[in-house]
Design a protein around this nucleic acid. Structure first.
Length: 671
DNA sequence: GACCCTTCATGGAG
DNA sequence: CCTCCATGAAGGGT
């Protein structure tokens, strides 16, 4: 290729940013505003990366707009009120219908045209037709994506945490909305009011779009998206759009179009490899990617030659300019509601392209892409390794395993112990205790709190004793995913009549994933999973000998290793929070938690949870749960995922340690 | 800006 | 399990 005839990369108005120099300011908290350990007013943006060429047009890439899409909105109060009203009405209609009414929610457009302004509306209608009963989101017109191309150079630790939290918040909002919409439809369906299910993944995105909550639309980012790391896992294509990782709903190649690019040529930004094209040849680091087009709409067969246009041309141009491209792989998995998990696998460059005859006999463009070296391992690769490891651990890693099940069969799934960096075998010295042991005094007479359990002969349903005990709604969805964090959750217990299959029995069933306690240079002992853990799923319980406050005080003086439940920040508040979209979506009345004075002694017996590392930007959190006894002063410390956690990624929790960003809970600090 | 067109989704039915 | 198919929405192209 005569790449020398192409304009230099600098002609493309990418904004090159210098890495921020970490200000070692001891007066500032180590994490500054990026680490909100306690509820605080919205943090000011962290110090920005230096922009060498400030200009009124570009400004800093990390301008306030980019930093604060969640806060910097100017919410329209009318619209907020409208939306709140919408939800109030939706519930009214559903409950009216439950009481024998005929109220149905239909799209505004189907109810007489007009009213294009309103994002939503509800009208009573006969319960018939395919659209009946669905909660429909009418989308507002919005500005097109920006065509200003920028590249983000390496961010400081603080900025990384800031953007990570920003992305996590958007993802929680998205997933919580999706889940809420599904539940609302299930209610309508149970009442026989729903004609057909709609696409909750699309509607959740639409709700966020109406509130300008999609990220990274004001710049077209080439390369790494702040807050999204190599290996991150996603379950819906639409979520990739919401985050700005890949802006095409279905198309595999995302690019800045020629007409909008400063150089007049298209530039590719990201591709998705999903196994849909028969001529792809995916070897991981080396990828032969097929261009788009030339296929019959119905069958996925090629029927005409592809042409060098659109995304195909963009890939060719990106090769000519040497521009890196984000690669996302769609991997088949039965762990995903869509049957696919999308992994962000990092940056690649196109090194070669050619026109070839495809397997169907028609011409296709092929692009040889090489993965840029020095990046984290790919999520899709880790998934494969982990699958093999589960089947044949010693075949995959002949050395390093100290135990294939350090729980000795006490957990529902084996917990492996791995160390390939030093001779430390410490976890083997402790008795493995899968469940906490409560002091008898704490449980005296507390088993049948609130009149015992429910009387349900089958799985519990709305309105039953246990639902009421949880404030009128069940804490989990049908897949056992926690809907929203609460101060305290009541699962069904031994005093309930409902069967073990009741969806209100989740964390009591114990570990559902294959975990590995492993040794690392950075965090000492840590925990990782061989399974993909979906956000909101139960991870494990924090076990040990539970001590009363009096016992804790005594043992603390002896220097024992105690974990204090009340020191965990209330991270449960973040999970299920949709206040960015529905400001006054009030949670049902929760039971309030009394002050927790107890502690857990892990100096003699412990479980996998004890090896979780600390982080101020954690991927798991503590949720208090009661089920086997109902003494609210001694809840179980159940741990749930707040992000999708890919295989081999270290699990981390916020212990409430303020003096250290990423460090280990100082359990053995006395040594 | 209004269409039209394409697109490695998705969920359900068969 | 697979294949079909209706529905769907973003964004490029005209």
């Amino acid at each position: 290729m005569e790449s020398s005839s192409f304009p230099d990369l600098n002609l493309i108005p990418f904004l090159k940013l210098e890495p921020k120099t970490e200000p070692d300011d001891p007066a500032e908290p180590a994490l500054g505003p990026a680490c909100p350990l306690e509820p605080a007013p919205p943090p000011p943006p962290p110090p920005l990366t230096q922009n060498p060429n400030p200009s009124p047009d570009h400004g800093s890439l990390l301008s306030p707009e980019l930093h604060t899409p969640l806060q910097a909105l100017s919410p329209n109060p009318d619209e907020e009120a409208l939306f709140a009203e919408y939800y109030r009405l939706a519930h009214l209609f559903l409950s009216a219908a439950a009481a024998g009414g005929r109220g149905v929610i239909v799209p505004a457009s189907g109810a007489g045209g007009g009213g294009g302004r309103d994002p939503l509306s509800i009208v009573p209608a006969p319960a018939s037709g395919p659209g009946a009963g669905a909660i429909v989101v009418q989308q507002k017109k919005r500005k097109a994506r920006s065509s200003e191309m920028v590249r983000v150079s390496s961010l400081g630790v603080r900025d990384q945490i800031y953007f990570r939290d920003l992305v996590r918040r958007a993802r929680i909002t998205y997933e919580s909305l999706r889940s809420l919409l599904i539940r609302e439809e299930e209610k309508a369906e149970a009442l026989g009011l729903l004609g057909r299910r709609t696409r909750a993944d699309l509607r959740a995105a639409a709700l966020m779009a109406n509130r300008e909550l999609w990220l990274n639309r004001d710049k077209r980012i080439i390369g790494t998206i702040p807050g999204i790391g190599v290996g991150d896992a996603f379950f819906f294509r639409m979520e990739l759009c919401v985050l700005g990782l890949h802006g095409q709903v279905q198309a595999g190649i995302d690019y800045v179009s020629a007409s909008r690019s400063a150089s007049g040529e298209p530039v590719a930004t990201s591709i998705i490899v999903s196994g849909g094209y028969e001529d792809d040849d995916d070897k991981g680091d080396v990828l032969i990617y097929t261009g788009h087009g030339g296929r019959d709409q119905k069958l996925n067969k090629h029927c005409v030659d592809q042409r060098l246009e659109g995304g195909n041309l963009a890939l060719e141009r990106s090769m000519a300019y040497g521009i890196e491209i984000r690669v996302i792989r769609g991997v088949k998995s039965d762990k995903s509601p869509t049957g696919k998990i999308y992994f962000y696998d990092g940056l690649y460059k196109v090194v070669e392209y050619w026109f070839d005859s495809g397997k169907s006999g028609f011409g296709v463009y092929k692009y040889k892409m090489l993965r840029i070296e020095g990046q984290e391992e790919m999520g899709s690769v880790n998934l494969r390794i982990a699958e093999n490891l589960k089947v044949n651990p010693l075949g995959v890693k002949p050395t390093g395993y100290l135990s294939l099940d350090m729980s000795l069969g006490k957990e529902t799934f084996p917990v492996m112990l791995f160390n390939d960096i030093d001779n430390d075998q410490e976890p083997l010295l402790f008795e493995y205790l899968p469940r906490p042991i409560f002091p008898a005094s704490a449980l005296q007479g507390k088993f049948a709190y609130g009149g015992g359990g429910c009387e349900c002969s089958t799985n519990c349903s709305i309105g039953c004793f246990c639902a009421e005990r949880n404030g009128g709604e069940f804490p989990y969805d049908n897949n056992g995913i926690l809907l929203r964090g609460k101060p305290l959750i009541f699962e069904c217990g031994p005093f309930c009549r409902c069967p073990p299959s009741c969806p209100n029995r989740v964390s009591q069933k114990g570990v559902r994933n294959r975990f590995e306690v492993f040794r690392s240079k950075e965090t000492g002992w840590g925990v990782r999973s061989l399974d993909v853990i979906r956000a909101g799923t139960f991870v494990c319980e924090f076990s040990g000998f539970v001590l009363t406050k009096q016992q804790s005080d005594v043992l603390a003086m002896n220097g024992e290793s105690l974990v204090y439940p009340n020191r965990f920040p209330s991270r449960w508040q973040e999970w299920g929070d949709i206040s960015d979209v529905i400001p006054d979506y009030v949670p049902p009345n929760f039971p309030l938690l009394p002050d927790l004075g107890f502690s857990i002694d892990v100096s003699r017996a412990r479980n996998v949870a004890c090896y979780l590392s600390h982080s101020c930007s954690p991927n798991v959190f503590v949720q208090f749960v009661l089920f086997d006894h109902y003494n609210a002063s001694y809840p179980h410390l159940m741990i749930f995922a707040t992000e999708n956690i890919p295989p081999f990624r270290e699990l981390s929790i916020d212990y409430g340690v303020v003096d250290e960003c990423v460090g280990k809970l100082m359990l053995e600090s006395s040594h």
